[in-house]
């Protein structure tokens, strides 16, 4: 067995983190993407830019600010402490918060593109047939944006699995809590356990390739949504 129990625990934790992050991002990202695709508000540019920030910021910036802001002296840390939640760094919940921020553009951008590609007249037609806005959204917009949802889910999940720098900075490397696969690989390399590092790293490579292959097969690049 090339994988130790600690390796498998890290894999399980990573999948749990990525699954929960993707779910939360779909819930929060869908209305946000809809708004970005449809609004004429002057804030559209600014909100779009904020959503895209994690694409260009190094993980060290996000990790450092999260460590400071979520810590006991930071504004968010004081808020979570006042709410009785304690501070979030070094906890699984803290990683979820960080991952939601970090993977936000990977979910919101495909959804925004997919929503923007829906012709206005289809939505108007639904409205003339007396469909309410929610009805229109769930029965017209969502089915038409299906490729966008697929891209958003796959990219959000895969990008969270691939997270390293942010987790390293706010995770504290706790087995079963914050020691995800990428950190486990780093530990193996640091400890000169190259064989174990190879198994996990190779596994990540195969996983990433298969995920993208599946995505590009079902949903070829260039089509709406990506």
């Amino acid at each position: 067995m090339p994988f130790s129990d600690a390796d498998l625990a890290a894999v399980g934790l990573t999948l749990r983190l990525a699954g929960l992050t993707t779910l939360l991002l779909l819930l929060a990202g869908t209305p946000l993407a809809w708004w970005l695709a449809r609004t004429r508000s002057p804030l559209k540019g600014a909100v779009g830019a904020i959503v895209a920030l994690p694409l260009v910021l190094p993980p060290t910036v996000i990790g450092f600010y999260l460590l400071v802001a979520l810590g006991p002296n930071g504004p968010l840390g004081q808020l979570t402490t006042a709410l009785g939640l304690g501070t979030l760094p070094f906890t699984f919940s803290g990683l979820v918060v960080a991952s939601v921020l970090y993977s936000l553009p990977f979910v919101v951008q495909p959804l925004t593109n997919a929503f923007a590609a829906i012709p206005e007249r289809l939505l108007e037609a639904a409205a003339t047939l007396r469909a309410g806005p929610l009805d229109t959204f769930f029965h017209v917009a969502v089915p038409l944006a299906r490729p966008g949802f697929l891209s958003a889910m796959v990219l959000g999940f895969a990008h969270t699995v691939g997270e390293f720098g942010v987790v390293l900075m706010i995770g504290g490397n706790i087995p079963g809590q914050t020691r995800v696969v990428s950190v486990q690989i780093y530990d193996h390399v640091e400890a000169l356990e190259y064989a174990q590092a190879h198994w996990l790293a190779g596994g990540m490579l195969v996983f990433a390739f298969l995920v993208l292959l599946a995505l590009y097969t079902i949903n070829p690049p260039g089509r709406r949504g990506l």
Binding site: L70, P72, G172, N173
Partner: peptide
């Protein structure tokens, strides 16, 4: 109660920032 730094610099940062 352990939180592990990747190296001693990061460990110091965990304490200096008040997180540990």
């Amino acid at each position: 109660r352990f939180v592990l730094g990747e190296n001693i610099a990061q460990t110091h940062q965990f304490v200096a920032s008040g997180n540990a």
